[in-house]
Nucleic acid binder design. Structure first.
Length: 156
DNA sequence: GCCAACGTTGGC
DNA sequence: GCCAACGTTGGC
């Protein structure tokens, strides 16, 4: 089993939106970045655990845990001109973009903000805490995953 | 709202 | 295939 982190803007699609859906499950559409696409298409497996990260907000933070419930399949929103993430270069005969389904597992007991994550030497290898990081989906090492859960009970 | 980082596009 | 221009991300 592998571990991941996925970013979303809470104003657009936050963890509260995911929780409100039937089965607390949704497809993670709209990813238009090849590195992120490859991870969803090729690497993420059912049962993998995923941190839900709120980006572009105050404060940016890890807020919960999700689980992959369906492996990579074609992101049909790329074919629809009415969709925000329409991509005319993707078509059903030659799909360019993929997505996975994720299910809300639980909220963290507290939000763990980015500026706190940056203070731990244990997490210094995470792309999340590195400068200029723009990748919206990234793998998380098991020891990093375990470490983050171990500070969940700490006082902020 | 600013701006640095970085991915993508397109002319050559 | 290079690289400048441009667009987007996302922290601050």
């Amino acid at each position: 089993m592998a571990y991941w982190l996925m970013k979303s803007e809470p104003d657009v699609f936050g963890i509260e939106h995911l929780k409100a859906l039937p089965n607390k499950t949704d497809h993670w559409d709209g990813v238009r970045n090849y590195q992120a696409r490859n991870m969803m298409r090729d690497e993420m497996k059912v049962g993998d655990q995923v941190f839900f990260y709120h980006s572009n907000c105050k404060p940016p933070a890890i807020v919960g845990i999700m689980e992959v419930t369906r492996e990579g399949y074609v992101d049909h929103t790329a074919f629809d001109p009415d969709e925000k993430y329409y991509d005319p270069k993707s078509n059903p005969d030659k799909p360019r973009w993929y997505m996975v389904d994720v299910k809300h597992v639980r909220d963290l007991k507290r939000e763990i903000p980015l500026d706190e994550l940056k203070t731990y030497p244990e997490l210094s290898d995470m792309r999340l805490v590195q400068k200029g990081n723009r990748l919206s989906i990234m793998p998380v090492a098991k020891d990093e995953w375990d470490f983050i859960l171990s500070i969940e009970d700490d006082k902020a």
